[in-house]
């Protein structure tokens, strides 16, 4: 196998501009080994296991060359890296034998297509992907996710809503929530109050997916420059009256389905979802 990986590397080095030798080494010594062990543990013959491992490494080399895989030191994640370093080594062995190649192809296509999707879509699939427990019937799982993320929710916010305090300092300890705007009916992008785009540095932003339970999406790489806005909302007014944590709003935002607010005195964002 080491000859095979050396050949792959030599070919890839001549083909790709962005060949990252250290990342390739990390893949072959880490995730690839893990995949090999899980395939053996699942009872695959050495021959079958080696064939799958070769396909995994071939696609992995392509991904390293094209820059789809990030090294751990990059400090950022994408679906492709998650798929190749976690999902496949962890879950491929439990996929029925005749489905494994199709899952490989699906994960490659999904990862590659997401690279050209908006950042918030990438972040949602990455977050959801982290919680996957099976790679069987990936398509159905994706449909569920995209339905919630992209389409307007069936239930409007109405008069009965539940407030959630989301702590954005968990993602970025210096983050001071400021202006915010919707990216989709249930996706909010929150901008840092002070860290705007300057001298080539991106503005600090955090994404929030307001599905049934709010989910933080991490840095969004958003290039918009929203101004803090103020909307009148009965839920926010009630929070000001009833919740001692609610204080002067910095910016508020609402649509038919969701309401969100940032505060002058907090790193939390208050969001309202239908009860």
């Amino acid at each position: 196998m080491s000859t095979f990986t050396d050949e792959l590397e030599a070919n890839a080095r001549a083909r790709f501009v962005r060949w990252d030798s250290a990342l390739w080494q990390a893949l072959t010594r880490g995730a690839a080994q893990q995949l090999g062990q899980s395939l053996l543990a699942a009872g695959l013959s050495a021959e079958e296991g080696e064939e799958l491992l070769r396909a995994y490494l071939q696609l992995g080399a392509e991904a390293v060359g094209l820059g789809y895989l990030y090294p751990a030191s990059a400090g950022r994640q994408n679906f492709f890296t998650l798929a190749w370093t976690d999902l496949i080594p962890r879950l491929l062995a439990s996929v029925p034998a005749q489905e494994r190649s199709r899952v490989f192809a699906q994960l490659w296509n999904l990862g590659e297509n997401l690279e050209s999707a908006p950042p918030w879509v990438q972040r949602i699939f990455w977050r959801v992907g982290q919680g996957l427990t099976s790679l069987a019937d990936l398509e159905t799982q994706l449909r569920g996710t995209s339905e919630v993320a992209l389409e307007p929710p069936a239930r409007p916010l109405g008069s009965r809503a539940r407030g959630h305090w989301v702590d954005l300092s968990q993602e970025d300890s210096r983050f001071l929530p400021g202006a915010l705007h919707f990216l989709a009916p249930t996706v909010v992008c929150v901008h840092d109050r002070h860290r705007h785009a300057v001298a080539g540095r991106e503005a600090a932003t955090q994404g929030l997916w307001l599905a049934d339970t709010p989910l933080t999406l991490g840095a969004m790489g958003c290039r918009e420059t929203p101004e803090p806005a103020s909307v009148d909302s009965p839920h926010l007014n009630e929070a000001l009256r009833e919740d001692p944590r609610a204080d002067a709003w910095f910016a508020t935002l609402a649509n038919e389905w969701r309401t969100a607010a940032t505060l002058h005195t907090s790193q939390h964002v208050l969001v309202f979802l239908p009860e």
Partner: peptide, 23 residues
């Protein structure tokens, strides 16, 4: 939404009848 998901899963990676993946 269904079309979009189908497009996401479709790309240049394909499997042949011997279950090998090709790009």
């Amino acid at each position: 939404n269904q079309d979009w998901v189908t497009r996401l899963l479709t790309g240049r990676a394909k499997t042949d009848k011997n279950l090998n993946v090709h790009l």
